[in-house]
């Protein structure tokens, strides 16, 4: 069997449609991960030991179980509890929730990295806690972790094909369906692989740039 360029051209529009869904799911999921991760981090710093420990174990649990099973759980179990989600919505929530446990760790490291003197200065200036966090600590912490956060965007993009398991027609799913129609899997799946490598390599170059730009040491 040889490579058929005509066939490749025919399936390309379908694949690009799939790529659109993949990118959409990644971006929306990433927004959830960014916000939820920060929520986890801040909850872990609350004085209440119960909240602290509960959040710690929830995060640990989500982080050390497979994303695929979590997607199944969200897609198949939540409807029986009265919360029916579309496939794409379930996928976006799953991706966001899973990666929020990684970004949580990243934020924690970033906050720990802010020099002690900054905290002491906040106290000395009598800043309210809210202002200390909002205007002093978080801006510095987030700046430090921009490259790591970028890495997780790439990692998440590469995990988005899992959404095909809950019937989202993202890139790999579109390729698989195109292949199933003609029983020629070689071209569609190869094209998908190449697209993934191109996007990942390009974005890792961007992340390296960010690293240089935001380097604090």
């Amino acid at each position: 069997m040889t490579w058929d360029w005509n066939y490749t051209g025919e399936i390309l529009p379908d694949l690009l449609d799939g790529l659109r869904v993949t990118v959409l799911a990644t971006v929306l999921g990433y927004l959830i991960a960014l916000v939820l991760g920060l929520v986890w981090t801040l909850l872990r710093r609350t004085p209440s030991r119960a909240v602290n420990q509960a959040v710690r174990w929830v995060v640990e649990f989500i982080r050390s179980t497979p994303l695929l099973v979590q997607l199944f759980f969200i897609f198949y179990v939540l409807p029986s509890w009265g919360l029916t989600l579309g496939a794409l919505t379930a996928g976006v929530i799953g991706l966001g929730l899973h990666y929020s446990t990684y970004t949580c760790e990243v934020y924690r490291a970033g906050i720990a990295d802010v020099p002690r003197g900054q905290w002491e200065a906040c106290v000395a200036l009598n800043l309210p806690r809210r202002r200390a966090w909002q205007d002093v600590i978080l801006p510095q912490a987030v700046r430090r972790v921009v490259p790591s956060l970028g890495n997780y965007l790439i990692a998440m993009f590469k995990d988005s094909p899992l959404l095909l398991a809950i019937s989202v027609s993202e890139l790999l799913g579109a390729a698989y369906r195109a292949g199933a129609e003609t029983l020629r899997y070689l071209e569609p799946i190869t094209v998908v692989g190449v697209l993934f490598v191109i996007v990942s390599v390009l974005s890792s170059i961007v992340v390296r740039r960010l690293e240089r730009r935001y380097a604090t040491y």
Partner: peptide, 20 residues
């Protein structure tokens, strides 16, 4: 290999390579 998604690689080995 860091750039490819594991699932894409798996599908490629499993569905595409047998054809060649």
């Amino acid at each position: 290999f860091r750039g490819t998604a594991t699932l894409v690689l798996m599908y490629w080995l499993f569905y595409a390579l047998p054809l060649v």
